[in-house]
Design a protein around this nucleic acid. Structure first.
Lengths: 335, 335
DNA sequence: ATCCCCCATGTAATCGGTTGCAAGAAGCGT
DNA sequence: ACGCTTCTTGCAACCGATTACATGGGGGAT
């Protein structure tokens, strides 16, 4: 308004060339002779020209941004993934747009408007619970799913090896001699929950151990739900000796509440988590957990998406490795 | 590509009106008669038209997005603020762009390119350590600072009452009888650190208590630095009996390490934090801390920015209230 | 010397909406 | 019936960059 930012026109005039040449110098320098290139660059320097992104995007029929749909921006778990996405996008000069899918009331309609070609060139969807119709309209750009996924969508997914992770944690507890193992799982409809439950159940079955319904407790990944689960366990007549939790947050909430009630971890009770968040290392005792590389998941998802945008046909699913991190919260089963 | 998305032209043709009328119907319905408005809306419905954002932005000379510069996307502290910003922006149909300022190597140059009119209509800057030159060029859009700030920039800032918060925590410890109080502060150049240190020092002085240099420990807001601080305290000949930490993460890391070394909290040592993150409530004992409303800071910053974009001249600084949350990590000074 | 090809550059159409201006219609007062 | 205001609508010029196509000059081969 106050200041007229220079246009490609102005640069062209100063360098005594056409706007086409300026544009080419900036986007495909190999098409321009060395002499004019230098001339143009000098003029760019002098005017302080920078391209107008809106105009560029309009002409190029793209938006220059990728939209990430996260279930909960406040959850550090997802922001680590965002960080990984961001690194990859920055290299390609793409913007990262974020939208919180649970943030406010705005539901399907708003989401469908966001998942639109004119807003983003592609999507990274991290919420497995969104209605498929959000993505089924013709104006929806290509997308990949990360972490969470929805089986009804046939977009590629980048996920940790949840089944294996649950198995590793469970077998670890079994190897320590536990035979009465509980599970604190996530929201029932969540695909992560289903896969991890399956890994848990398979490991129990392979060891010939019972899968007792009253030891299966539903949570919501929050510390609060871990605390609530601890209270339920404390109230049980017939208590388990160990629990596998679907998130470190829940594991920590559970462990802390047990300790407050005089239960010694791991002497009397073992706790295993999932994720390996920063807190896991600093808890007392340290939380035995399944490490998944969150930034790597994000980066891989971003790379997959970019490949699709270039026309590649990627794997339907990329499964990233997980590993067991043994810390102090698990120990031999009490006699 | 495969599918031709409808243009305003197509809607106009179907409704038998001009493109101008279609545009007006969609953006300023009051300018259009009721009959044509219905006609147009029907045509919009039938064609499934949605406006092309790039074209709209080009013509309107704006970008439709606000860029948030965060020091560390992985830090939940900032993502809560982002959540607050997001809620306000969504109402106005603005996008939230995020950039991590410490993410990769890309420093001043990249940042300056991001802080550009053609990329965002405004900025919310949460990194007080960015060089002022990033914002001093003529193409930098209006911006506000949130949480952290840089005294050299004269943009409005929205911050918690850090001085008061530090004072509240410190006076709380003093009221409990502590006279040997340490402080674990953040990075030295950080404005938060300076303000909170001042609040701490003022409270000590008002109570006539000593401000011992060897009890002032520098950290970086991480749990790990809290752990390191605990080790330093344990190694001291002449130990304090309480510590005020500039973040809950550090407070937790410190408290956990003390406990691992047999120090009973709060019986032998009291710990106070700052922020009131989720963990504070679930730690054992619960962490006494200063609560600041992170989402509210974000929302206020966003509203301030939008006001500026509308031409308002806002307060130079908005200071949001904080309060002391007393939990189990602080208790009477040992005899 | 002639022909052909390639390289560097310019011309102008185009991306898809928005909006200043003007014209026509309708309503109102006298 | 006339002049004036108000309301609706259309025309066409933009916003700023990209790129298909055309053009002209230079170099190499024959």
């Amino acid at each position: 308004m106050t200041k007229n930012t220079p246009r490609v026109r102005d640069v062209a005039r100063l360098a005594k060339v056409s706007t086409a040449t300026v544009s080419r110098t900036l986007t495909r320098p190999d098409l321009v002779s060395e002499t004019t290139r230098k001339l143009v660059m000098k003029a760019v320097e002098e005017t302080g020209y920078t391209v107008n992104i809106s105009a560029q995007n309009l002409r190029r029929q793209r938006t220059g941004s990728i939209l990430a749909l996260v279930p909960n921006l406040g959850n550090p778990f997802f922001t680590d993934i965002l960080g990984g996405i961001n690194v990859v996008l920055r290299e390609r000069k793409l913007n990262l747009l974020v939208a919180d899918t649970t943030g406010t009331s705005g539901t399907r309609v708003q989401m469908a408007a966001l998942a639109h070609r004119s807003r983003a060139d592609g999507l990274v969807v991290m919420d497995g619970t969104l209605a498929p119709e959000v993505f089924s309209h013709s104006a929806c750009p290509p997308f990949v799913q990360a972490c969470e996924w929805n089986g009804q969508l046939d977009a590629p997914r980048v996920v940790a090896d949840n089944h294996l992770g649950a198995g590793l944690a469970t077998r670890h507890l079994i190897a320590l001699g536990h035979r009465r193992i509980a599970q604190l799982f996530g929201p029932e409809e969540n695909p992560l929950t289903i896969t991890r439950c399956a890994g848990f159940a398979d490991a129990l079955q392979a060891a010939g151990l019972p899968h007792r319904a009253e030891w299966m407790i539903e949570g919501d990944f929050s510390m609060g739900s871990g605390q609530a689960a601890a209270r339920r366990i404390l109230a049980m007549k017939d208590r388990p000796t160990a629990v596998f939790c679907h998130s470190d947050g829940m594991a920590f909430g559970l462990m802390a509440e047990l300790q407050r009630n005089g239960v010694r971890v791991p002497l009397e009770f073992s706790v295993a988590g999932f994720d390996d968040i920063e807190l896991a290392e600093h808890a007392t005792p340290g939380l035995t957990t399944i490490r998944q590389e969150r930034a790597e998941i994000g980066a891989t998802a971003a790379r997959t998406l970019l490949a699709i945008l270039k026309g590649a046909v990627p794997e339907a699913a990329t499964v990233l490795p997980v590993r067991l991190v043994e810390r102090g919260s698990t120990g031999p089963a009490p006699a």
